[in-house]
Amino acid sequence: MQWTTLFKKELLENWRNKKWIWFPLVMILIAIMDPLTTYYMPLIIDAVGGMPEGTVFELPEFTPTDVIMMSLGQYSIIGVIVIALISMGTIAGERKSGVSELILVKPVSYKNYILSKWASLNVLVWFAACLGLFASWYYVNILFGELSFLALLQIIFFYGLWLTFVLSLSIFYNALLKSPGLILFATIATIVTMSIVTQIFSHVLSWSPNKLSSHIIEMLQTDQIGSALWGAAVITVALSIGLIISAIYIFRKKEMAA
């Protein structure tokens, strides 16, 4: 089947350019940094020194939920930037180097071309996010107290949807724009704008994708999946699908014209 072939080609390419190695490592690093430094903060302050004798620090007590949310907080900033970086050239770069012409001159449908790219990056992002959040969950359990495995799975599932949305946005801009730098900028600018708008109209937009993290906190605190979380999840999936369909449509139109 054509789709499978293209999908395998994308996976192989991401393996060859080492994304499968460095991206999961970076995601693990981002996720474990906060739990570790938070727990050892007194030690680190001691080791770095420079504090006058007798200084007493009142460090707040952190619950497991607080700490795993710190990892998600890092993902929402650095993670999103790295995802935008790994996906910024996936179509635009091939257009520039002429590879996409080599592929599309054969009877390859535009739909399969874009879907294979989207799917292969999704597999990579979900894999890396699973590893990273699992590592963070592991440290949280050792250092801060228990957080159930079910909770971890729920976090991965709902937060993964947000990462898929970021990826879909980047693929959409890949179809629309030609320069990888511009795609990176547009993706991040869109995410930032969305988060500002969500904050301003937060009472109306409780189902905005940006609200996924705050609904996840609620889920961890109340131990049940609220309707707002499901709403935000459904909207996120719908927006991702919409973005990909428009990406295919735009790409087809542009390539036909070129």
Binding site: L29, L36, L43
Partner: peptide, 20 residues
């Protein structure tokens, strides 16, 4: 004790950094 503890904290980060 402090430095060996600190080493333990940094170990996973250092291993990942080394692989990268």
């Amino acid at each position: 004790i402090i430095s060996s503890d600190l080493l333990l904290i940094l170990l996973p980060i250092m291993v990942i950094q080394l692989i990268l």
